[in-house]
Amino acid sequence: MILEIDNIELSFDNKTILRGVYLSAESGKITGILGRNGSGKTSLLSILFGSLNPKFKSIRIDGKFIKVPLFQRNQIAYLPQHRLLTRNMKVGSCLKLFNIDWNTFLNDFEHFKTFKNQYTSNLSGGELRLLETYLILHSDKSIILLDEPFSNLAPLYVSKIKDIIQTQKIDKIILLTDHLYEEIVSLSDDLYFLKNGCSKLIYNMEDLESEGYLPINYQQK
């Protein structure tokens, strides 16, 4: 499956946010989106999901124009920057809601073994983000959007989530963005950079250097 979006025109208070974006993502690949704060990364994901309606847009799946928001087609899952799970839900109930086995979850994150009957309001910011990201990645949707999945995560959990993303991409389209650009660079099969409302396909680190996003002579760790 191939997902494409272009012909976007989005403005707020007479300020153009997106105007020349083209992005293509496909099953079996991780597509990363980089850009400075305010470049429109979150807006682009919201448009793809269907929660933000720009003046113009064209979204296609396998070349077919999609008229209704993707969330109405029940084929997309979105991890937003803001809190996803309500505070009065228990951790075990969250996993059950997504049809995820508790012991399977513990195989990856044993730290949660005492949290099954705890409310999500008792989790730290990093623990909550870890749980939300895990749930979205293991949803039955064919398109996954991740906005800041590594926010507040300890390095060990960042590594585990990256492994899960690699596993889940086999039969899903995964698009993600994060301020931890090194993680996005290392994960992505295809990488786009947003600047001045437009997108650019990035082929190497020199491209990011030329855009002023990375310092000259940057070397990936």
Rank of each mutant, 00 (worst) to 15 (best):
F150A: 00
Y192S: 09
T16W: 04
P80W: 06
K57L: 13
G35C: 04
L84G: 01
L146G: 00
T86F: 14
I66Y: 07
Q81S: 14
N74G: 09
Q166W: 03
L175H: 02
D6E: 14
S139D: 10
K96S: 12
L97H: 13
N37T: 12
V185D: 02
N37K: 10
L130S: 03
V21G: 00
F150D: 01
T104V: 10
Q220V: 08
F109N: 04
K195I: 12
D108C: 12
Q166C: 05
D62W: 09
I184R: 00
F65C: 07
K221T: 12
L52A: 12
Y218R: 06
G35Y: 03
K64D: 15
S121A: 15
Y192I: 12
C94I: 08
L123D: 08
T31D: 09
R60D: 14
V68F: 07
L131M: 07
Q72N: 14
L85R: 03
L97R: 10
C198S: 15
N122R: 14
K116V: 04
D147W: 08
I174F: 05
V21S: 00
P215V: 08
K57D: 07
S186W: 07
G32S: 08
I76H: 00
R73L: 15
L45M: 12
L187P: 00
I100E: 02
D108M: 08
I161S: 01
R83K: 13
K96Y: 11
P54T: 13
G40R: 02
D178H: 03
L131C: 06
N53G: 07
Q118T: 13
M205W: 03
N14P: 00
T104P: 00
D6H: 11
T114R: 15
Y181N: 09
Y134S: 02
C198A: 13
L137H: 05
M1Y: 06
W102R: 08
T114P: 06
L194V: 05
T16R: 13
L191Y: 09
I164Q: 10
Y192V: 06
I100A: 04
I76W: 01
S46V: 01
S46I: 02
Y181C: 10
L48D: 03
V68D: 13
G197Q: 07
N122V: 03
G32C: 11
E9I: 12
G35D: 01
E209Q: 04
F115N: 10
T177M: 07
D207N: 13
K160W: 05
L84H: 00
Q72P: 04
L135H: 02
D163G: 02
G212T: 09
T31S: 09
H138T: 07
T114Q: 14
I30G: 01
N37S: 12
D189A: 11
N99G: 01
I17G: 01
E4Y: 09
D207E: 11
R36Y: 04
